[in-house]
Write a protein that binds this DNA or RNA. Structure first.
Lengths: 355, 355
DNA sequence: CTGTTAGCGCGTTCAT
DNA sequence: ATGAACGCGCTAACAG
């Protein structure tokens, strides 16, 4: 390509080169309005000659809408979110949209600032796994954004009072099934780890856990429970260290704190215990490496399904051009997905001390 | 806040509200030029009253530079890249920059398109783990971008002929040390998996592997080697399935294909073999879950170090305002980092069949 | 079918 | 110290 070290060509240069007006160039580029075949040719040749490509930022300003979709997740390095992002990117790309990614660090106030910032980019839509912590949430703010015409699609975490499109998983079903599985095997000396029941997901999970326990007539004592939010990893760690160092450690751990399984494995291993021979684990994470070790996963059908569903909804709304339909709410079914290393033997049932 | 459902306030609204001109408002907002204390106050109050925040996109157009940094990685879901991104984001954020993330899928042509697209956003800088595959690379293009004034910082993969800032790891050192570790233990029936030696990293790794082998007088036969690029996961899988199903499978696998370890674990496990009791693994990945299973890692000091270093360099260049210094090249030292599950016994040495 | 004109929201001279 | 005017690059409404 005969590129000189000149500055980037603008639409004006193209117009000049082709001997037409800017609007004509704009017309052929955007395929809007009628243009004679001959002029079209001339313009196209000028475009190639000058290696012209429009300034996304100028287009954005002019149309008061960019082709950027804002994405906010708690932390991108959690595998669920990075996979979610990847899939969303692949889909958005087909429509020529780009994703501007931010980490909220599970902090509502921070999230709020990020939203504001994204808005200043005239984003075409907002794709978010909203924070719902002790410092509140931005449900109302998100609602107002949607009302003002910017599509908002929530994933994985349903805020109370939210009135935006959303794709969620069946927390109750997943946790209920997982707990039953453990109890049905006969284990009684078990531990439970999860988010606190102050917000929707934690509440649903705890309800599910207790429902299953009740069904089996089992009571898990306080010292075998740890209900802390995601951020409190230190508490989780020390709790886990404590229980695995007991003379009679739990035979099974039910863990509904997402993104924490890998660390658990490490801690358990460093205590000289094996999974699942010494301690059986069950949870919501969907990690390939964990699966290799007889780990029960019931987040199936997994990230791919929820991500695809959410991303498609996102694009649907993004392409809506103003008239947003009523908010949709989809819940992805979950199914117990057990993976067991072949040849491994599950530890025998036990009897828990009466509470 | 007394928000009405009015459209977003512009700088003009603020000016009107404060009874001054737009330029004055601009001055107080950007702290540029003199403004009397009194006018400043009035403007600030108007800003708060109207809940004004500048349009990032308009600022970008007007200054011909946005506060967006383009980021291109092969695939964000590989843990190395998602951690890298997270850290870069945390640092960039301190300077009020946002990251626009793209996945190149290890495809050079695709990467080229992504670069073009990012450029159309007038990005302040480009942060990239460039592709270097059989379909070529964009070294020259990246160089030209840097020359034209946009900072380019490469991470983890050094392109031949690249003349941009870069932060890389010591591939030779890491692989040499890992191979020696295995051979020193006495294993001889071993397998080797890595990228093909057609590009720099693959070449360095193979050289390191062979240097160590030579040192121990060991020759690894063809049927125990699989040198294919990252994308060729099918070949890798079938190769692995084949070797683990042999009557006499390798005692150790040296794997220098990044991001593939977790899958390996799964395949090996599904063949009824255990790690490391039956097969010992060593590689470059830094995965917490893997570490729990007696897995040797020598990518230490790990993602955090390389990411921090790279991100700081990135911001330094981003804030350069035009005059870019000569390209810098930094290589992060690597150290063998072995993690072994306590109480586990390594498989005994063996003697490989003479080639 | 095509050119002219007027913004989009803001930074930046250049006067005053 | 402040305002008027122009331009960033492009789209859209209005004429012809």
């Amino acid at each position: 390509m005969g590129e000189k070290s000149m500055a980037k060509a603008t639409i004006r240069d193209v117009a000049q080169q082709a001997g037409v007006s800017q609007s004509t160039v704009s017309r052929v580029l955007n395929k809007t309005g009628y243009v004679s075949d001959e002029t079209r040719m001339r313009v196209q040749r000028a475009v190639e000659l000058l290696d012209y490509s429009p300034s996304a930022i100028a287009v954005g300003l002019s149309k008061s809408r960019s082709r950027i979709i804002g994405v906010i997740v708690p932390q991108i390095f959690a595998s669920f979110f990075s996979e979610l992002f990847y899939i969303a990117d692949r889909i958005a790309e087909q429509y020529d949209y780009r994703l501007l990614l931010c980490n909220s660090d599970a902090n509502a106030e921070r999230e709020r600032r990020l939203i504001d910032d994204l808005l200043s980019y005239q984003i075409a839509a907002l794709f978010i796994t909203p924070v719902d912590g002790r410092d509140g949430n931005n449900a109302e703010y998100l609602n107002s954004i949607r009302r003002s015409g910017t599509p908002v699609v929530c994933v994985d975490r349903e805020l109370p009072g939210i009135q935006c499109d959303g794709v969620y998983i069946d927390n109750f079903g997943a946790c209920y099934e997982a707990t039953r599985e453990v109890l049905a095997h006969g284990w009684r000396n078990i531990a439970y780890m999860a988010d606190p029941p102050v917000y929707a997901p934690g509440r649903q999970r705890l309800r599910a856990f207790e429902a299953a326990c009740r069904e089996f007539g089992v009571v898990v004592p306080e010292e075998n429970r740890m209900l802390v939010p995601i951020e409190a990893w230190e508490k989780r760690e020390s709790f886990l260290r404590e229980i695995v160092s007991r003379k009679n450690p739990p035979k099974a751990i039910i863990n509904f704190s997402k993104g924490w399984d890998a660390s658990m494995m490490r801690i358990i291993a460093s205590a000289g215990l094996r999974v699942p021979e010494d301690i059986f684990l069950t949870g919501l994470d969907d990690d390939g490496a964990l699966q290799a070790y007889g780990y029960y996963v019931n987040y199936t059908p997994g990230t791919l399904v929820i991500a695809t569903s959410a991303a498609n909804l996102l694009m649907e709304r993004t392409l809506c051009e103003g008239k947003l339909p009523e908010p949709t709410r989809e819940t992805i079914e979950t199914h117990l997905h057990s993976v067991l290393r072949s040849g491994i033997e599950l530890p025998p049932p036990d009897v828990s001390p009466a509470p």
